[in-house]
Structure formats: C-alpha cells, structure tokens
Design a protein around this nucleic acid. Structure first.
Length: 423
RNA sequence: GGAGAAGUGGCAGAGUGGUCGAACGCGGCGGUCUUGAAAACCGUUGAUCUUCACGGAUCCGGGGGUUCGAAUCCCUCCUUCUCCGCCA
C-alpha cells in the first residue's frame, strides 16, 4: 500500500511510473485524493463536535456536584443533540475511509527506476548467465521419467491419495529433498540468518499484511471452518512477525530464514508447464526474509541476490538472473530478480527463486515501523527471496546429472545425502 | 471439548462511572554532582489522525452497546492462565 502523503505529493510521478507496470493509475489516484480530502474535512467536523461534547460532559459533572440540577438537565439536552450529529458524521467518516481504502489498496507498488517496461516475461532483462549447459546423451529423459525409472518420486500415488500436484517423494528422492533443505538452511545460517519454523496456516490479517489478500485470495487454500489460509510461502508468516511493531534502528538488519511447505491452488494452470515437478500444489522451500532500513534495502537486495547465486554455483547448476519487467513484476514488488536454472532434458529455464524489495509497501500495510535517529516513526523496508524452492532444483539436478550409471549427486550435497548416486 | 480467572504504557502494576492518556516503581533519555564511573538528586519519557502553529480528536486485547460522561457497566469475539477430559 502506498503512503497517502506520498501519493498527494507525487501524483504525476506515480502515474508515470505505474505505467511501467502497465497500470493506469490516474483515475484511482484522483479518487484517493478526493476521498482523503473529504476524510480530512469530515474528521475535523467530527472532532469539533466531540470537543464541545467533551467539554459539555465535564460541565454536567460539575453542575451535578454543585447541585445545579436544572442547568444540568438543560446541558444534557444539548449534549444529546450533539451526539446525534456526531453519529451521523461518524457514519460519513466511516464510509469515506472505506471508500478511500478500497481505492488505495488497488494501487500496486511503484517499480524501481531500473525496472524495464514490458508486457510479459519475454520482456524481462537478462542480467547474468553462468555455468555450462550440459550436453545430454541420446535417450536422456525428462525428470518425470527419471523419477519413475529410479522410483524416487511418485506422482500417481499422490493423485490417488490427494490429487494432482501432490507427489510422494520416496527413498533417495525423499532423502535428496531433506538434504537440500538442510544444505540451504545451513548456508543461510552461515550468513547470520535466524532460523524459524513458522505456522503453515495464517489468518486474514497476515494475508493482507504481505499483500496476498485481497489480491490473490483464490490462489490460497482456505479453511473456512476456522477462517485460516494455508501459506503460499513462508514469507507470509515470517514477515508478519513484525506486523504492528515499532523497531529500533539498531535492530536492522533483521535476517530470518525458514523452511516450510508451501501450498498453492494454481487455479488456471495447465499444460506442459505444469508437468512433473514444474508446478505443484504443495512444495518445499527455504525462504529468506529481511527487514531493513530504507537507506540500505537496495544494498541488501544485491547481497541476497549474490547469496542465492552462490547456492546455485555450489550446486553446479547453470543459471541466469533476470530483472523482471514492469508487466511481470508482482503487485507488491518494487524490484524483483528471478533466478532460473537450465533443465537440460526439458531444454528450458525454470524459475527457482525470486528475490524482491518491497520497499515500504508491505510495511505500510502491516504498520511495520522503526524509530529513526530523530525519534520519528518511519516505515521499514521488507525484502524476501527463495533460497531456494526445491522441486525445480530437483528437476534440474535429475535431468542435468543423469548418466548411464545413474544420477550423480553434486559434491556439496554428499555430506547431506550420504550417497553419491541415485541408481 | 467442559468449568473458572484474567487481559491497562518498554517491563511491573494501581485504578470499578466524571478533573484518567492513565498513580507508584523499574527501565530509557537529558541534566546536576564527579578526574571518570556508580550512587544520589532534578527533569523527561506511548501511538495515530489533524493543524504553519496554538490546539483538537482517537486509542487501557478486538468489535459493538448503555450513559450527558466508560479503562471502569453490558454483549460478542480473540488471547493467556488454572482445573477436568482427550491426545502426538
């Protein structure tokens, strides 16, 4: 959510920059300012009424204690009238604030200056590419075939027990997953992150705080009985730790890491993009979250980017980094880098991480503030990134490392898997 | 799941209808004293909206209500604690 004062002071600039997200903000901004004006006026009127009513109430108290009952009754009469007016104004103020908010939450975050314009992922900016794209031998298999060949992931069994997109991992497949989780967590701990195990269900306040609600309501599994949502990412519970808090400046940087399962309905997805591990309803991910001083958040973003690149390098996977264009950037993000690994049998790049700076967009929704050096409350900046999402990493490892002997485990993982090869 | 108790400022803890945004204490900050520090003493110390400012309004778990007036009374939801039941 954008800050009201910022909108008022930078109207033209906001409209211009949101155009990069292909979002026409002109009308909404006008509504926001109009309703905010009305809000201020109404608030003032109400405050004045309440002020006189408060004075009157005190007076009535005094009149009673000095036994002037008649005068007190008169004052009561007047007070009741004031109250009626106050009720009406309150209603009006309420409506106005609701209108204001309904427009305010429609505005996406403003893209960073470096964000290129563009319509879709085709217009993303390739920033970096490294690693050797493996030449696979004749007869090489995509990961879903490898999964059944070595009996390490069972999609059909998942369909039977739950439904499509909920695979079972078995034997060395399960152990590989566990190894990756531990590897990713240990790498983050070495960078001074604090490890968390969050709840996997969140309430609607939390969903609103990070921006999933109301925008992506249909993408989350909802438990209506208890009014709770399954988390689509650990970002939600981990960032919401700081909802409605005021930090001290020396609390920065806050660096948290969490492993969790993630649940996504993925309504509307279909076709070859969702085959095998490419897109699941339930998957595992290690997520890094930082809360940072506004002046430092972009340095932090670069640091997180480097950290994620180092993970892929250690796993010996060929990868590239793209800067998302305006059209591909999420609602809440100001700048996002996507990491993609090359999956050699599918011959395509798979997104395995997304690292974003939300600036104060989430912080404003969840009232995450800090005291600056002058003792003033200011909104903090929030960032997060996957480090990393498991399924597509597994897909690339299986495909890229297949050989006649089996699937070769990268050196760095062997102390975690305690096997060298899946055969 | 059943029965009971409670939720007040960073912490601790008073306040049960009027002058309470809230005593006292601790902590924090500033000062006096000191070569420096501690101690002692003095002062100060919540958030949000609004205003150039003075000021005004709102907030005592959340929401609603009673009343001229609510931290204080009523309803409801949430959370915590105790006892019983169940259970990994």
């Amino acid at each position: 959510m954008l800050q009201l004062n910022y909108i008022r002071e930078n109207k033209a600039d906001i409209i211009k920059r949101l155009a990069i997200k292909n979002f026409d903000a002109a009308e909404i901004v006008d509504h926001v300012i109009k309703f905010d004006d009305l809000r201020k006026i109404t608030q003032k009127e109400l405050d004045d009424i309440l002020s006189t009513s408060n004075k009157l109430a005190k007076e009535i108290g005094n009149l009673y204690s000095s036994e002037q009952h008649e005068k007190a009754e008169e004052a009561k009469e007047e007070s009741i009238n004031l109250k009626k007016t106050a009720k009406e104004l309150e209603q009006k103020l309420n409506d106005t604030v609701n209108n204001l908010n309904s427009f305010l939450i429609e505005l996406p975050n403003i893209p960073h200056n470096s964000v290129p314009s563009g319509k879709s992922d085709a217009d993303n900016e390739l920033m970096h590419e490294e690693g050797v794209i493996p030449e696979l031998a004749e007869g090489s298999l995509p990961h879903w075939d490898l999964a059944s060949k070595y009996n390490i992931i069972d999609f059909d069994l998942g369909s039977k027990v739950t439904g499509a997109g909920f695979p079972f991992y078995r034997g060395k497949g399960a152990r590989l997953q566990r190894a990756l989780i531990n590897f990713f967590l240990d790498e983050a701990l070495a960078q001074d992150y604090i490890e968390y195990q969050p709840p996997l269900l969140i309430n609607s306040d939390s969903g609103f705080g990070t921006g999933q609600l109301p925008d992506k309501e249909g993408q989350m599994y909802f438990i209506s009985e208890d009014d709770l949502y399954l988390i689509p990412t650990a970002e939600v519970p981990i960032t919401n730790i700081y909802r409605n808090t005021i930090l001290k400046e020396d609390d920065f940087p806050i660096k948290n890491v969490a492993y969790s399962s993630c649940f996504r309905r993925e309504a509307g997805s279909y076709g070859k993009d969702v085959r095998g591990l490419n897109r699941l309803h339930q998957f595992d991910k290690v997520e890094i979250v930082q809360v940072q001083h506004p002046d430092k958040s972009y340095n932090t973003l670069e640091e997180m980017k480097d950290q994620i690149a180092a993970l892929l390098r250690k796993l010996e996977l060929p990868f590239r980094i793209v800067r998302l264009c305006g059209g591909d950037l999420s609602f809440a993000s100001a700048l996002t880098y996507d990491f993609e690994v090359f999956s050699a049998a599918q011959k395509r790049w798979l997104e395995v991480s997304s690292v974003s700076n939300f600036e104060n967009f989430q912080a404003n929704r969840m009232k995450l503030r800090f005291k600056d050096e002058n003792g003033k409350s200011r909104l903090a900046h929030t960032l997060n990134g996957s480090a990393l999402a498991l399924p597509r990493i597994v897909a690339a490892l299986l495909e890229n490392n297949q050989s006649e002997l089996g699937i070769v485990i990268p050196e760095v993982l062997r102390s975690y898997t305690r096997f060298d090869i899946i055969d």
